[in-house]
Design a binder for these strands. Structure first.
Lengths: 337, 337
DNA sequence: TTGTAGGCGTTATCAT
DNA sequence: ATGATAACGCCTACAA
């Protein structure tokens, strides 16, 4: 293994000079710099990560905690990829932690100095990792909002506004009875913020606009969607608008509506909360509020990097404004002039 | 930050004793061990990762290179999660690298000693990272097969056998004209091994069994599936069997067949190559060959760990045997007694 | 602009 | 069974 010292010898300079050429923390004369850079190339030198971490107490690693359970959801992967690529562009690598270990993972990573900062996905309202994250000397950025955000840096889509936006869109089209196909029951039981906040936004705005709202959780399989749909139409036969939040439920919903002879958007309108890709690849191009996964991942890294640079953060909570894109799945309520 | 030295002082022993209590590399008397462990708890000591890596030249980190392009595919995510959890159970953390950087990432990680071993997903037949991986001092495990596997450790589903199995199943049911809905054209252009090998297995076995085979790549959107389907039936109106390899094409295919009035499995049979979850959650429970994502990830880690332990590996290439599960999407060809 | 030297926290070799 | 004490490779005041 080539060391800094060997490079220094080869270039005829001292070790510190090589170090400074690498870090750029002091000015180096052009000829010296060239000699050193040439030696680095020629010897194929790569700084040793461990030594660097020890001496500088910086690992140049960002830890990313991903949820274990909900992870097959493409959104999570998209965020993870965005985190990884953005991190690289700032000189950081990403350590992948699964939620499996729970708080222990936080202890391990913060305690060992393995990572310089943590990004935590899928935060629950009363997340058991929060106390540890508060106590850690590494900065943390949450993707998602816990109940209490005091002293925390968070990034998330503004799901309350998202819910409101969906309600508004359908109300404007004349729909008076809206059904919400929600996330799986387990998601609500875990008190994941986004699901509850979306619902709250929907309810409030629907109330303001005089629209009736019915919410039903849904697992996302054809069977469960079938049952959910029956119960919805049993209870509210006049339902003409749907808001779907569960990605997995989208295809089943469209498919079942078609099978029941309900045309989209002539008979019923559907608005989805999902990534763009899902909305445009469904059997009907969906009117949707995009989940800006890439942006969330990117912003989280940028905030983490800013914190590491010691920049005081102006906003502690970054809520991304939702944008609703009208596509082919929503139209005027039946009987509307 | 609490250091080993502080623990030693607190426990009234030398630093090396504490180190050995932690590593278990030499026997420690019960009382001493207890004192040390007590001090560790009381002071909240955590070994410093950088120092450890420097002194032992082991980072206890496994690098995982995930593909950038095809990554939103659930299979990839599942593998990644399996890698992360298995790695943890062996005391390793996982560094997430995206294919974006290409060979440079390999250089960086191997050169810096950031990771003790690498696991590379989505290997192409002539992968440009292979030469570097060969030269690296860290062991590597590939998920997927390149053209030349000499000196490499690889894990993959036996896709050739998978193709053969699909052909057999349909042939046994009396189907004489089979269409293969393949991966997106880009996948073949990149010379990804699994796609070509599946096709090869299909073609060979179909040939042996006197079954006609038509292969068409497919992007996975409804539009492209629609076009693909038309062309298939134009060219081979007698097609009664389908093999789908592109996860994204499954829902569109089923949906379009239904719309065309072709019943599954009465008129046409469909066999998919996909994760179990996808097969059981589709609108028709699919006869399928499972892609054992979890097992692939797990095996890859186990192989990497074995290599790190210096165990000579008996098998360099691990091909997992495919298993076909018959569900509701395949049945006798129409007109078969 | 460049060199010198001490220290970062662990591991592991030699002693005892 | 335990202790001293070199490394490990790099960073960064402090000097020159």
């Amino acid at each position: 293994m080539v060391t800094l010292a060997e490079v220094a010898r080869h270039a005829g300079v001292s070790a510190s000079t090589v170090s400074y050429v690498l870090s750029g923390k002091r000015s180096i004369s052009a000829p010296t710099r060239e000699r050193v850079e040439h030696s680095i190339k020629e010897l194929g030198y790569h700084p040793n990560a461990g030594a660097r971490a020890l001496a500088s107490s910086r690992s140049n690693i960002l830890a990313l905690m991903v949820p274990l359970r909900t992870v097959y959801v493409p959104v999570m992967m998209e965020i993870a990829i965005a985190v990884a690529t953005t991190a690289r562009s700032h000189g950081y690598d990403v350590l992948l932690l699964t939620g499996e270990e729970g708080p222990a993972a936080v202890r391990r990573v913060t305690g060992s100095g393995l990572a310089d900062a943590m990004i935590v996905m899928d935060v629950e309202l009363e997340d058991e990792r929060l106390p540890l994250l508060h106590a850690a000397r590494q900065p943390t950025v949450l993707i998602g909002l816990p109940a209490d955000t005091v002293g925390l840096t968070c990034v998330d889509l503004d799901f309350t506004a998202t819910g409101a936006l969906c309600a508004e869109h359908l109300a404007e089209l004349g729909h008076r009875e809206i059904a919400v196909v929600g996330e799986a029951a387990a998601v609500y039981e875990r008190h994941t913020g986004f699901a509850e906040r979306t619902l709250e936004g929907l309810r409030r705005r629907a109330g303001e606009l005089g629209v009736r709202l019915l919410h039903r959780p849904c697992e996302g399989s054809y069977e469960s969607m079938d049952g959910t749909l029956s119960r919805i139409f049993d209870e509210r036969p006049g339902t003409t608008g749907f808001v779907v939040q569960n990605e997995a439920a989208i295809d089943p919903l469209l498919s079942l509506l078609r099978r029941q002879g309900r045309a989209v958007p002539e008979d019923v309108s559907v608005v989805a909360v999902c990534p763009e890709q899902v909305a445009t690849q469904a059997s009907v191009r969906l009117t949707s509020v995009a989940i800006p996964a890439e942006e969330m991942g990117r912003r989280a890294v940028e905030l983490a990097v800013a914190k590491l640079a010691g920049q005081p953060l102006e906003e502690q909570v970054t809520l991304l404004a939702p944008e609703l894109t009208v596509r082919a799945s929503s139209g005027p309520a039946p009987g509307t002039s």
